[in-house]
Design a binder for these strands. Structure first.
Lengths: 155, 155
DNA sequence: GCTTGACCTTCCAACGATGGGAAGGACTAT
DNA sequence: ATAGTCCTTCCCATCGTTGGAAGGTCAAGC
């Protein structure tokens, strides 16, 4: 199976397969004499594993850990569960942060007439506002890293 | 006021102030003879505006639009509201995507004994699982872009 | 005046995950 | 043989942000 077929079979783009290989997440496959990568069913299985973990928002690092546990037949399920629970925690935290923003903004929007007049509590809040609700003063300085598997759609 | 003072007064790091200037989000400030940037209270006001919009997850592009509306004293509040509503929509969508992942994972984790035995539905789902709940088949291929103002904490 | 330290300047690189594209070789079907 | 589709490697862009290097400037203390 060449990379294109493996891609279709796994749902991971050829680009990403090469990338995952380059960073050592997956092992280097065999090659034909002319240099084409050849994938076994086993390889595709691993790729599907990665694909599904990715869809649940796991980072490449976490996927590495999960793959190692997958291959370790003497693993303790507690180790897998620990990774999952930590990730759930992070997901919830991010979701809550997003919703806190959404709610703050919704309150402002609710008080905005949304007509032709210039007066707008949204703009006013940005211009004069005190600290934004959440996070009581400590400026969060965000920047989603790692589990950024969101924004479905026109990616 | 030099950039360090403006940074403290606005909550935007010096690095980001220079960056926002470089991409044209904020205007170039005056300079001392030796080249130091000097900021007026007005400039700091704009920086604070940016800071607060950023905390609500607006992208740089959106902030540009908001700044333009802010400066436009004949703006229609409807225009501001429209940006806000679109953003609320996006925030909600992302939050829901994160929570869908969280829930899926939680179900799996709930069925994982989390002890010393290797059997683990989480790993099994990744290895054999069918399509992941959400998004009925269409693989989302995530990657938060734009409104990535999440992941509070150790940034 | 001179040194020290804290600031400022510009430029370049990195992160994470992904896509785009160029230049060139390999394969397949007609 | 030739066209078309695939593969290869390489570099670049994204988005927002931080880090660092190399060098200039300023204010305070001696």
């Amino acid at each position: 199976m060449n990379i294109g077929e493996a891609s279709k079979a796994s749902g991971v783009s050829s680009k990403m397969i090469r990338y995952y290989e380059s960073i050592g997440l997956i092992s280097e496959p065999l090659r034909t004499e002319s240099g084409y990568r050849i994938y076994s069913d086993k390889d595709v299985h691993a790729l599907r594993f990665v694909s599904r973990a990715r869809d649940l928002g796991f980072s490449v690092d976490q996927m590495g850990d999960l793959l190692a546990l997958w291959r370790d037949r003497s693993r303790a399920s507690a180790d897998v569960k620990a990774i999952a629970l930590r990730h759930i925690e992070a997901l919830e935290q991010k979701a809550q942060a997003l919703q806190a923003m959404s709610h703050t903004l919704k309150h402002l929007a609710d008080n905005c007439s949304g007509d032709g007049r210039p007066d707008c509590p949204i703009i006013e809040e940005f211009a004069e506002g005190a600290a934004m609700s959440q996070n009581n003063g400590r400026r969060p300085r965000f920047g989603v890293t790692g589990t950024d598997a969101v924004a479905a759609g026109q990616a």
